[in-house]
């Protein structure tokens, strides 16, 4: 991981441990948006990973069906 990717990953981890339980919301997808962000950054690097994560969060709204949505290109079905 590049330093930038490591930093973003850390930021998401901090979110998962602090804000996430506070906000009490739940994601419409599996894996959840924050897990998705970490996997995407690990698989595609900081820039593309962050872009994928941002797009995922935008999709995670009541007008979207949700469901199983793995990070593209991670070999998971």
């Amino acid at each position: 991981m590049t330093p930038l990717a490591r930093m973003l990953d850390g930021a998401v981890l901090v979110y998962q441990w602090t804000l996430s339980p506070l906000l009490g919301g739940r994601c419409r997808f599996h894996p959840s948006c924050s897990c998705y962000a970490r996997e995407a950054i690990a698989a595609h690097g900081a820039i593309r990973g962050a872009g994928l994560a941002g797009w995922r969060i935008l999709r995670c709204n009541p007008w979207c069906d949700g469901g199983y949505d793995p990070v593209p290109g991670t070999g998971r079905d």
Partner: peptide
């Protein structure tokens, strides 16, 4: 279990939670 349940919701076009975007708006 979580994954399969979401799959059910998806095929039935319903979902019990509103998603991350509305939640993030709170911040």
């Amino acid at each position: 279990q979580q994954q399969e349940m979401l799959q059910v919701y998806r095929t039935e076009k319903i979902n019990p939670v509103s998603g991350c975007l509305p939640m993030l708006v709170q911040i």
